[in-house]
Design a protein around this nucleic acid. Structure first.
Lengths: 345, 345
DNA sequence: AAACATTTGGAAAACGTTACCCACATCACT
DNA sequence: AGTGATGTGGGTAACGTTTTCCAAATGTTT
């Protein structure tokens, strides 16, 4: 059996009250900025708090009030795009009393359920779920329990807010850019999807839709060519190899995410090819590594930082006003042309 | 003022007890696997728990027991080396009841203090601090309050465990590799340090020491050349520019971390140079990006994953036995030779 | 049968804080 | 002076769970 904690006893509100010569209710009111305390009282309590180094126990507070905690569920710590989002969230929370705590859902519905339950059981005040793969019903259930904002999921639920970029339009920007350079055989690497709900909501599916639509709009419908793998570097690598093995290989590849494009560049290097000399390569996300000089990836900037700031703002609003109607924010992407795209040979 | 939570009421232990026709004490004992419950009792309670979908409130538990939470403080979410460590920690915790929650200390002592306090106030059962910059006294204070394991800090505190690789030896491996290729002018990029404690404990300082020692051991003492910047990509970029501007530029650069090496490669590309054709470049960490085909970085593998697994094991031990003598684990690094190093021109 | 040991179940208090409600004092208006 | 409004402070209970301690039943030994 685990042994009891032997940590030093922390200062409690009872000791602060005794030290200040007031009730625990008074101390609590002062700390919560609650109505009904005089300036003198506030001053006395604050002096006692400082003198004793008192900090409230967030877990004790949870039984009646708030823990002042915002939980963020990441799909994966490796994709630098999520780091951009986190920077935005952290920046927005910096001037508040909220503490940001993160954990990973691992792109797996069972794992996501375990993680969101863990955050709820710890009485987190609100959750930001990034690119969750769980069913819409499950997400609704979460949002019914705790204020929730979802990023990277084109849902129109009435129960939670969403923040996304316009993935459909963003994909169109890439195709327009490549077509503008003269490319006609423009291929796409998508995340393989079969689930109908995911096909309607996930960013990768909308990017593939945007690609198809833009290709037809540029009169290139007959050149539509999609390799279905995964949004990982390995998925990019495999996708590129599949596309290069075609009877009529593409002259340009639009990878649905920057990490996928990195895998494409890997595969080109192995095949003794280069971008854009042999094949143009474009990604999506504008992760910080995309600007790395040796890579210099053409991509779409979906402003991860701005997404994070916006999501955090919506969540704090929803914590304050839980029944507020859902907001679904769609940000406008911008193309970022760098060194991996050029005219076809 | 914030409005009250309007979330649905969750099932409590009182309802489970009523449903099972037993006391709340019995339910609690069954869930904690405490002594003093019969098999029939356990069966009845478990059936009621399943039927009602009951989950204990971790925050209520905190007032008398454990929250079953492990907190990890990261310096930065961007460095992929920390993702390797996290994978190891997560893997070790996977078969336990502990939930991993992460947050960022931002490489700043004030920010670290705020974050560790937040984790302690939320009654986390134990902390893993990765590359903290706080003073030794501060770390001791934390460890006196909550079971703590520190990674990336060569400390011999009696109060907390540490897990590190042998940075001194690792640096020697790089110098040996480069000297073996025939390099004599081997330069190093270090994190600038002036604080005496940090010079004694931080991995970057030990790598610089290891570099100096190895250079002298290879009879290259007169060629010791160090650029002091920061362990960031920008620091690598600046360091490379400083070294290239020397009257006698180096033929090889040992950057103290892989992210620093990426900045060096950036600077070389801008100067129209390449590695290893013009200058050999070696890093440290073996982040997953080091194996990226376009980069193919020569580096030192400090087995982030293994560090994570080891740290998690030590922490769970320390939670079980808080007064246990401190363990200071030092792992052996291995060189990884790839495409950025070769014989000097 | 009596004495002792062990197992099981549960009443009550503890944990640290907030929410609720009310008593009392002071101020403003008629 | 009497009445109503407002501000301040605090007593008490609630929150959901674990810990502590003991009573009662059952099993074992003399």
């Amino acid at each position: 059996m685990p042994q009891p904690r032997t940590a030093a006893r922390r200062v409690t509100i009872v000791e602060v009250a005794r030290h200040a010569g007031v009730s625990t209710t008074a101390v609590s009111k002062v700390l919560r900025n609650a109505y009904g305390t005089s300036p003198q009282m506030r001053s006395r309590v604050r002096a006692a708090v400082d003198r004793l180094g008192y900090r409230p126990s967030a877990t004790a507070r949870a039984l009646r009030g708030r823990t002042w905690t915002v939980g963020v569920m990441l799909p994966d710590v490796r994709n630098p795009f999520f780091a951009d989002i986190l920077d935005g969230v952290a920046e927005h929370l910096d001037d508040t009393e909220y503490q940001l705590l993160m954990t990973c859902g691992g792109n797996d519905a069972t794992s996501e359920a375990r993680v969101t339950e863990a955050m709820i059981d710890r009485s987190m005040d609100g959750l930001i779920l990034i690119a969750p793969v769980s069913s819409p019903a499950h997400l609704d259930g979460i949002a019914r329990t705790v204020p929730t904002v979802v990023i990277g999921r084109h849902s129109h639920s009435a129960r939670y807010d969403t923040v996304n970029d316009d993935d459909f339009t963003g994909a169109g920007l890439v195709v327009a850019h490549l077509a503008g350079l003269g490319h006609r055989r423009i291929a796409h690497i998508e995340q393989h999807e079969t689930d109908r709900v995911r096909l309607a909501e996930m960013p990768n599916a909308l990017r593939a839709d945007g690609y198809r639509h833009a290709m037809r709009a540029h009169g290139l419908g007959e050149h539509i060519d999609i390799a279905s793998t995964t949004y990982t570097r390995d998925g990019g690598h495999l996708g590129a190899r599949l596309l290069l093995a075609r009877p009529d290989p593409p002259t340009a590849i639009f990878a649905g995410a920057d990490v996928v494009a990195l895998g494409v560049l890997d595969a080109l290097t192995e095949a003794g090819l280069s971008a854009p000399g042999d094949i143009s390569v474009a990604g999506y996300d504008d992760i910080t590594l995309a600007a790395f000089r040796t890579i210099s990836l053409t991509t779409v900037d979906q402003a991860g930082h701005h997404i994070g700031v916006t999501a955090a703002g919506l969540l704090l609003d929803r914590i304050t006003e839980p029944g507020r109607p859902a907001a679904h924010v769609k940000l406008t992407p911008t193309p970022v042309v760098r060194g991996t795209t050029g005219p076809p040979r």
